[in-house]
Design a protein around this nucleic acid. Structure first.
Lengths: 239, 239
DNA sequence: TAGCGTCTGTACGGTAACGCACATAACTTG
DNA sequence: CAAGTTATGTGCGTTACCGTACAGACGCTA
């Protein structure tokens, strides 16, 4: 028991960590720890979902794509999230895609196991459904934010959300990539990043972002960050 | 039996209509038909949800609001949807609001009843979860659309989605209101509406929109409409 | 029918972001 | 070290949309 409890605390994904011991024990034998390389596609638009992923040190972006190839991130999942909710919502697939943006570890569980456990209707189900609601809030806020807020504020919001999902001040991410997540041009990100660097909030060097002043970033971000964070905390009980 | 089946076919909400007879019978005694007046708030940001609403001839917008009062619609629900998903997702409340945009009828069911029926894990649960996934697609597509598509195309997309939810060519809706749903200025809508009218796609007169050429609207809209419609059809089995 | 409120049309300067082009800088590989 | 690739910086004309202002048009009510 102690062993299991210890393992549980060290899994690194806060959703799994919030499970009651009994349910966690049931999953434990089936848990698989995988390393997710940068750029790996966890699922494609219209493709079959084989696993549910609980990122621990990795971070995954949920991307919406247009016919002309333009993309925008609608949600992101790290150690406070889970990837592949269509598995238990029953749609089998979705028209978006999930791509690894920060390499690292994740715990994964097979689709059929997830469905069986979900249908038991216990805390596992409740947790995943509350997460789904939190994600809906994130996507909704992204929708209005994309419409009404300038790049620089959206960039700050994104930095903060990412920072929450990978507990690290260092982020490896080119401006080109960030632009595709924010749904804008690389040059716009360059300018925004330059201003944030001048203000001493971040430092930037060939794909290495360092968060220097988190409080400053929060002040520079739009309200959208707090809305999403508050809802995650409320629904998932993160302190 | 025949009576029930007949009632079922005439309920007017396609989600309820898709329920197996047995589950529908269980709900039938608790069904309440209400008239939703224009502007009525079904739930407020942070407020308690007492009912789950299945619109039949009415249409409800899911609105995201910013501190400065700016708003944007992230999703809409009519006869192909349901309002109040936080009830069964377990969050009890949500940070957005639901406002009646087209007056009409809706069927509603009490919160505790919904939760009990949902926890039985039958087709009712599956249907609501698949609807949730369809809604997520709608919100996600709204997010990227808000970012990358011009007002006129977004306006067309919105007209088409609304048209699907209320089977009527007539829409009562001021340009001011539409602007607040699209997250833009009233004047931008005026110009866009003028162009669509000149093109013969719609006619417009003091809050009365008439859809004249649906095929033309689909051609003028961005791809986002089709993405959402296809996913609704796939997940909810609408032909 | 006069008056008032609501809805719509139009115009104009300002701004954020786009598309494009090109220059520089830093790692990477031969 | 040279050459090539990737990442970043910067400028410039164009566009979509904003904020504001104002005028006309319609409909309701007194």
């Amino acid at each position: 028991m102690t062993k299991i409890s210890k393992t549980k605390e060290s899994v690194g994904n806060r959703l799994l960590a919030a499970l009651p011991d009994k349910e966690y024990e049931r999953l434990l034998p089936h848990i698989e720890v995988v390393t997710l390389e940068l750029g790996r596609v966890l699922y494609e638009s219209g493709g079959q979902l084989e696993y549910l992923y609980f990122p621990t040190t990795s971070m995954v972006a949920l991307l919406q794509t247009l016919e002309d190839g333009m993309t925008a991130e609608v949600g992101l999942a790290g150690n406070e999230g889970v990837v592949g909710i269509a598995l238990f919502l029953g749609g089998e697939t979705t028209p978006n895609q999930a791509i690894v943006q920060v390499k690292g570890k994740a715990i994964r569980l097979r689709a059929n196991l997830i469905q069986a456990e979900f249908n038991r209707g216990g805390e596992f189900q409740h947790l995943l459904l509350r997460y789904t609601q939190a994600l809906i809030t994130q996507i909704s806020q992204t929708a209005i934010c994309n419409r009404l807020h300038p790049v620089e504020q959206r960039f700050c919001r994104w930095l903060l959300l990412s920072h929450d999902q990978i507990k690290s001040n260092k982020l490896e991410m080119s401006q080109e990539l960030i632009a595709s997540l924010l749904g804008g041009r690389r040059e716009s990100v360059t300018v925004a990043a330059g201003r944030l660097q001048d203000a001493g909030l971040i430092s930037y060097n060939r794909g290495n972002i360092m968060i220097l002043d988190r409080a400053g970033l929060e002040a520079a971000a739009c309200e959208c960050y707090q809305v999403v964070k508050t809802e995650y905390d409320r629904l998932l009980g993160f302190s």
